[in-house]
């Protein structure tokens, strides 16, 4: 699919939403919705996406949309999918419809993990998209279990003793894959082609599918609005956010960055890591992060090559 062709289909998510200038998730929504062939029904967890796109009486959604709470989008969409299955079985509806659940990393990695796990285990045919912006941005930039180590957030502040978040992020994609669902993948809105292709596979999957999509939050990351795409790309290039997929249990790397791109370079683009560079550079801490990223990458490469 070439981009100009993609633009032929109207986007079911329109402007007039109130996300910050240069926000990443509207791009994620656009790429995913363009990949859907059937009409979609969207469920959304509480978070930036929901509050900026549905401020009454204005909605940016041109498809059926529901939000009910923060931790339960997987359960809410389970119910919609169950309603569909029931009405279809009764012959009261005949169309093919695709069900999408959107949740941020707070609503997915943390508070919504149980509902997500339940929905995956039950096998509802839905595509769950985590728009991962690495923190609780809607409430004013708090750490989540997706926040990278070292990041300065309002609940993991860069203090005099403790330099930002101490923990490494939870490997949610692997946790999801462990449910044995037909399709799970990690992608980034900076790589539209990768994301589009994966969204297509997710929609076609025979059962639940999951997409973990890195979506820049320029406010929380401390980046210039125009750099939204570049900074997400940096996460991919540095191997901190590898692109891969798990199709019917088979792990496959989607992209092998050609050049060595140090995590430090990616971190230095963002205000949330400034304290690790100024007034003086925290060499040991940054090195630790680099070696963890390297180790995780090697583990992933091993996993993927062992499978092929």
């Amino acid at each position: 699919m070439a981009l100009p062709d993609l633009a032929k289909k109207p986007v079911r998510f329109i402007g007039g939403h109130r996300a910050c200038a240069g926000c990443g998730f509207p791009i994620t929504i656009k790429i995913i919705l363009q990949a859907a062939e059937n009409p979609v029904i969207v469920g959304c967890a509480t978070g930036c996406m929901e509050v900026t796109s549905t401020i009454y009486p204005y909605t940016s959604w041109e498809c059926s949309f529901i939000h009910s709470a923060f931790e339960n989008v997987a359960a809410t969409v389970s119910g919609i999918e169950a309603a569909y299955t029931s009405l279809k079985r009764q012959g009261r509806i005949d169309k093919d419809i695709t069900f999408i659940a959107f949740g941020g990393d707070g609503g997915t990695y943390d508070i919504g993990l149980q509902a997500l796990s339940g929905a995956l285990e039950r096998g509802h045919k839905m595509v769950y998209v985590c728009y991962d912006n690495q923190g609780y941005m809607n409430t004013g930039i708090q750490r989540s279990s997706a926040t990278p180590r070292g990041a300065n957030t309002t609940t993991s502040p860069a203090g005099k003793k403790v330099p930002g978040k101490q923990q490494y992020p939870k490997d949610l994609t692997a946790i999801v894959a462990a449910h044995g669902i037909p399709y799970a993948a990690q992608s980034s809105m900076s790589h539209w082609n990768d994301l589009y292709r994966k969204a297509k596979k997710a929609f076609a999957a025979d059962g639940p599918a999951f997409l973990n999509v890195l979506s820049t939050c320029r406010l929380g990351w401390g980046t210039a609005p125009e750099d939204t795409v570049d900074v997400a790309d940096g996460a991919v290039q540095s191997r901190l956010w590898p692109l891969y997929e798990i199709e019917k249990g088979k792990w496959k790397l989607s992209l092998k960055p050609r050049r060595h791109y140090p995590v430090e370079k990616w971190m230095s683009m963002q205000g949330r890591f400034r304290h690790l560079f100024n007034p003086q550079k925290n060499e040991t801490f940054i090195e630790e992060i680099q070696s963890q990223v390297d180790a995780k990458w090697e583990e992933l490469v091993r996993r993927c090559s062992a499978e092929t």
Partner: peptide, 21 residues
């Protein structure tokens, strides 16, 4: 060159495309 990268990456759906242009 009508590559449509602007159309794709604009978060506010501002770029207008018609017949792939």
């Amino acid at each position: 060159i009508h590559c449509h990268r602007c159309w794709l990456y604009c978060p506010d759906m501002c770029w207008v495309s018609e017949d792939k242009k």
